[in-house]
Each structure stands twice: as C-alpha cells, then as structure tokens.
C-alpha cells in the first residue's frame, strides 16, 4: 500500500494534529479548518484537492505562517511555522506570478536572494541555475510583461526555488493557464521535482492534475473545512502525460471524484 521508500517516510517535514482555524466575521464564526490531522514526509508530493471554500488554500497558508491557526498544533521542519518562515524553510508559489514589472526576469528571481543577503556572484550563479531549471535561459533581460502567462509562472517557480528551500508550497499555480500550457508545466514540474528531490505541497481543484502529480492526494470538503480522504497514489514516480489514459490512473481519479462528491453537501 505504501509506495514511498522507508527512508523518506522516516523524516517528517510537516506535522499537523487537531488543527483548526475559525475566522470571526460579522455573520458569526466561520470554521475554515476543523480537526485536521496530517503528516507529510520528506520528498513527498502531496496535493490538496477540494471544492472552493474547503480550506485547501487556508491550510497551505497556515503551513506558510500566512494565517495563524486557532487550535491544535503544527510543526514545519520541527519548528513552529513562524520560526520556519524566519528560517526561510519554504518557497511559496502563488496563484498569480506576482513578478515586479520594474525588474527584469533575472532581477525578479534574484529578489529573495537580495533580501536574504547573498553575495552578487552567488546571486548571479543561482539565478542562472534556476532559470535553466525552468527552461527560461535567454530571457534574463526581458521584463515580466513581455512574457506569456506560462513563462511568468515558470519565472515565479524559479524565484521560489532560488534560495534552495527543501519545501515548495504551491497554491493553484497553473489555475489561470490554458489546458495545453498546464499539461506542459505539469510535466516540467514532475521532472523538476525528480531532479531536486524537494517536498512539494500543491493546492489544486483539478482531479487529473492532482492524480498526475502527487504521491498522495488529500481530499478536503467544506463547512467546516476538513479532510475527507487521503489517497496513496500507486503510480510510479517516473510518469509521462500518457499515463493519464491507463486504467490505474483512472481508478485513482475515480476514487478522488467519489471523495469529492461524497464530501460535498448538496444543500445549496
């Protein structure tokens, strides 16, 4: 059942126990997350999937210390999320590329390095390496608004990887792109993951994307946001786009879909 080698499961990167988050609003409390239990081991690729309002983005933001939980415990690399953020433990890729238009692509990728105080030579070297990693070499001097949406998102991935964090948090990074570009970037992301051996937590609302990318799929459901199912993906780590036609792939996708359907309340 467990497809992961034992040594990877040995070190856990994210430990979440009994976590809850309630927003106080004018209309009373909103239970964004409730009773979340989850462990993510080193080298895993875990996807959060669920309908909008299920708290998948909120959960990712809690891991990144962009939101504070109101109950339960969470540790990232054995530290609190706050300490982990100050230690620059993770790179975060947002829904939008959020590149600065007054900086060239190379300067955008160098932004976290500047903030973290790397030397000029170090910056140049890391920018070069990461631009190569996302296939953007040759576009160093271009400005973001001169690039397509897919290229901008690749640049933002290179920016998140530039300071070489072990953990990559991605919040629907390809949600705004068209199907073809999305397939291409999914394939590239898998290669990149295989090459760098990072732990990836990936938020999506696309079933094929989740099944294609992940080693484990976490299905969330709304009101209150909670985990409905955790599915181990038996597909081999080394996979191409055509694996999506296989029976095994469809079986996993079916289980995810069943989970989404069962967890969804039809009262609205």
């Amino acid at each position: 059942m467990q497809p992961q080698p034992a040594d990877n499961a040995a070190r856990s990167v994210i430990d979440i126990a009994k976590l809850s988050l309630t927003f106080e609003t004018g209309d009373g409390p909103v239970h964004a997350l409730s009773d979340i239990d989850l462990n993510i081991g080193a080298g895993e690729f875990v996807s959060f999937i669920g309908p909008s309002g299920c708290g998948k983005t909120t959960l990712l933001r809690v891991i990144a210390d962009l939101e504070a939980p109101t109950g339960g415990t969470i540790s990232v690399n054995g530290m609190s999320p706050h300490e982990a953020r100050l230690a620059r433990a993770y790179g975060y890729v947002f829904q939008a590329a959020a590149l600065y238009p007054w900086r060239t692509i190379a300067e955008n990728i160098a932004l976290p390095l500047e903030i973290m105080g790397h030397s000029r030579e170090e910056q140049a070297e890391r920018v070069r390496r990461n631009m190569e990693l996302v296939d953007l070499d040759g576009f160093e001097r271009k400005y973001p608004w001169q690039l397509s949406g897919g290229m901008q998102q690749r640049a933002s991935i290179a920016r998140a990887l530039s300071f070489d964090p072990d953990l990559l948090l991605m919040d629907e990074p390809f949600g705004a792109l068209d199907e073809i570009v999305r397939d291409h970037l999914n394939e590239q992301l898998l290669k990149l993951w295989a090459k760098t051996d990072k732990t990836v937590v990936f938020v999506t609302h696309s079933i094929p994307e989740a099944v294609f990318l992940s080693t484990r799929i976490v299905v969330l459901c709304p009101r209150p946001g909670r985990i409905y199912d955790i599915i181990d993906n038996p597909l081999p780590r080394d996979r191409g786009l055509d694996i999506r036609e296989t029976a095994e792939f469809l079986k996993v996708a079916h289980r995810v879909r069943e989970g989404l359907r069962a967890g969804h309340s039809y009262d609205d």
């Binding site: 620059r88 975060y92 829904q95 959020a98 600065y100 007054w102 903030i115 973290m116």
Partner: peptide
C-alpha cells in the same frame, strides 16, 4: 495582497519591503 504575502514569505523586514516593493 499577494505581493505583501510574497515579501512576508521571504521574511523581509520593513525597510526591505519599503525599498524593494512599496516605493517602486
């Protein structure tokens, strides 16, 4: 918000956020 969050994830301090993002 995304741009503020971005600087937050880098643990950038006030002056860095001011000079590298908000003033431009």
């Amino acid at each position: 918000r995304i741009q503020h969050d971005l600087m937050h994830t880098y643990a950038a301090n006030y002056l860095q956020t001011l000079l590298k993002m908000r003033l431009p």
